[in-house]
Design a protein around this nucleic acid. Structure first.
Length: 405
DNA sequence: AATCCACAGGAAGATTAGGATA
DNA sequence: TATCCTAATCTTCCTGTGGATT
C-alpha cells in the first residue's frame, strides 16, 4: 500500500484544518475585517466585532488569515499586536477562557495558571497584570461563542478595557447562530456588537473555485475528471453551501478512487462517497442515541429482520414496535416508557434519517405509522451492540424471533 | 353514508437531571 | 455539600381522523 502511488500530492490540502493563503470569494469580508482591526497597528483599540455565518462559510479561516497578516505587519512596523484564538466549544467556561488568555502571555517571569483551583477573580487580576506588562493591542478571537456557558466571560472581557491603562483589548466573536445576541445581557450586547458582519453561504460557482484551488495543490495533474468538481460543488451547495462539506466529499471521493486503484477520480466515486458519508453520519447519530431510542431502534430492526425471514412484506406499525420494545426492556431490565413517548421517539428517529416513518391509514384497521429502516440492518446492529445495555440482550434475539414466529 | 379501528398528536401536569447558588 | 431552579423528559388523558368495511 505504501509503495503504490496514489492520486495525492498533498493530502493535507484536502483537510478542513488546511489554511490556504488565498480565500476565494471572501475578499470583501477580509477587507472589512482588516479595516475594523487595522487601528490595532496604530495603537488604537479596534471595535469589537461579531461575525455570523453558517458552518463552512469561512468565518474561522478569514479571521485567522486576517490575524496572521496583522501579526506580520505588526512585526514589520514594530508595533506590538497580540492575537489570541480560542475555540469556545472546547474552552467553554468563564474561568477557562480567562485562564487560556492568561496562559497565552506565559514567559519566564510569570507562573502558569492551573486549569483549576484559583478563584476566578484571582485569575482575572493576574490576567490584567499580564496584559499591562505586555502592553499594545490584544485581539481575542472567540470562535463558537454561542457554546460559551453563561455570559460572565463576555461581560468580563467587554469591560476589561475600562480597567486597563497600558493595554487595549478587542474582541472578535464568531457564531453560527444569528439570534445568539438576543439572549445576551444588554450591556454585553451593546459593547460587543459595535460591528457586525454576516458571512453568506457559498453558491455552487463559488464552491467550485474553492475546490479548484485545492485540487491543484492536492492532486497529481490529470487525476480528476473535469465534471467531478462541479458535481461536488453542486451537491454541497444544495446543502447550505458549506465549503467544509464540499471538501469532505471531494476528499472522500479521492480516497475511494485510490482504494479501488482507479487512476482518476470520476463521478462514480463522488456518488459512492456521498453514500458513504451519509451512512457514516447515520451510524454516528445512532452511536450517540439515548438508550431508550436504541432499544426502540433495536425493536424495529428485529421486526424487520423477522419480516424478511418470513418474506412477509407488511408494514411495521407503532403497536408492534411497542410490543417488542416492552419485551426488550424487560429483558434488559431498563424501565419502560409509555407508548405515547415511544411514538414521539419514533418520529424523532425519522427526523434524524435513521428510519422512515410515514403515517398511513389502514382503513378499518386504524391509522398508524409505516416504519422502515433506511440503511443496512447489519451495520446498525453492530453499532447497537456496542452499548452495554445490549449485552443482556445478546441471546434475546433468538428468543425474540421464536416468540414472533 | 355510517362505522370504527389503531393509532396520531395536543395539553397539562409530574418527574428528573444537572447546573447554579448559597 | 445541601438546596434550589430550570429545562428536558415523560406520563396521563384526551380528542381527532383516513379510509376499508359494512
Amino acid at each position: 500500500m505504501l509503495s503504490r502511488d496514489g492520486l495525492f500530492i498533498n493530502r493535507e490540502a484536502m483537510r478542513p484544518t488546511y489554511m490556504p493563503d488565498i480565500l476565494p470569494h471572501r475578499e470583501k469580508e477580509i477587507n472589512n475585517l482588516a479595516n475594523i482591526l487595522v487601528p490595532a497597528l496604530r495603537n488604537e483599540t479596534p471595535s469589537n466585532v461579531f461575525i455570523y455565518g453558517k458552518t463552512g462559510t469561512g468565518k474561522t479561516a478569514v479571521t485567522k488569515l486576517v490575524g496572521k497578516e496583522l501579526l506580520e505587519k505588526g512585526k514589520q512596523i514594530n508595533k506590538k499586536v497580540n492575537f489570541i484564538y480560542i475555540n469556545c466549544e472546547i474552552v467553554d467556561t468563564h474561568y477557562r477562557v480567562l485562564q487560556n488568555i492568561a496562559n497565552h502571555f506565559i514567559n519566564e517571569w510569570s507562573e502558569r495558571i492551573p486549569f483549576t483551583g484559583w478563584p476566578t477573580d484571582e485569575v482575572y487580576s493576574k490576567l490584567k497584570k499580564m496584559m499591562e506588562k505586555e502592553g499594545g493591542v490584544i485581539v481575542i478571537i472567540l470562535d463558537e461563542v454561542d457554546k460559551l456557558k453563561g455570559d460572565e466571560a463576555l461581560y468580563t472581557l467587554s469591560r476589561i478595557n475600562t480597567e486597563l491603562t497600558g493595554a487595549k483589548v478587542s474582541i472578535v466573536g464568531l457564531s453560527n447562530d444569528l439570534k445568539y445576541t438576543e439572549f445576551l445581557d444588554p450591556r454585553v450586547k451593546s459593547s460587543l456588537g459595535e460591528e457586525n458582519m454576516i458571512f453568506p453561504p457559498y453558491d455552487a460557482g463559488e464552491l467550485q473555485d474553492i475546490l479548484k484551488q485545492r485540487v491543484e495543490i492536492a492532486f497529481k495533474p490529470d487525476s480528476i475528471d473535469s465534471d467531478v468538481v462541479p458535481l461536488c460543488s453542486a451537491l454541497a451547495a444544495q446543502e447550505h453551501g458549506d465549503a467544509r462539506r464540499a471538501l469532505d466529499l471531494l476528499r472522500m471521493s479521492a480516497e475511494l478512487a485510490e482504494r479501488s486503484k482507479s487512476p482518476r477520480i470520476t463521478k462514480k466515486h463522488v456518488r459512492l462517497a456521498q453514500n458513504k458519508i451519509e451512512i457514516d453520519r447515520i451510524l454516528e447519530v445512532i452511536r450517540t442515541l439515548p438508550t431508550q431510542s436504541k432499544l426502540i431502534l433495536l425493536a424495529i430492526l428485529l421486526q424487520e429482520q423477522h419480516n424478511k425471514k418470513t418474506s412477509a412484506n407488511v408494514a411495521i406499525t407503532t403497536g408492534e414496535v411497542y410490543e417488542i420494545y416492552k419485551n426488550l426492556s424487560k429483558k434488559a431490565r431498563t424501565d419502560k416508557i409509555s407508548q405515547r413517548r415511544v411514538a414521539d421517539l419514533i418520529s424523532e428517529l425519522d427526523m434524524l434519517g435513521v428510519i422512515t416513518a410515514r403515517v398511513i391509514s389502514k382503513g378499518r384497521y386504524g391509522r398508524t405509522r409505516d416504519i422502515k429502516v433506511s440503511s443496512s440492518l447489519e451495520e446498525i446492529l453492530d453499532i447497537l451492540k456496542e452499548d452495554e445495555v445490549f449485552e443482556e440482550l445478546s441471546n434475546y434475539k433468538v428468543q425474540g424471533q421464536t416468540r414472533l414466529l
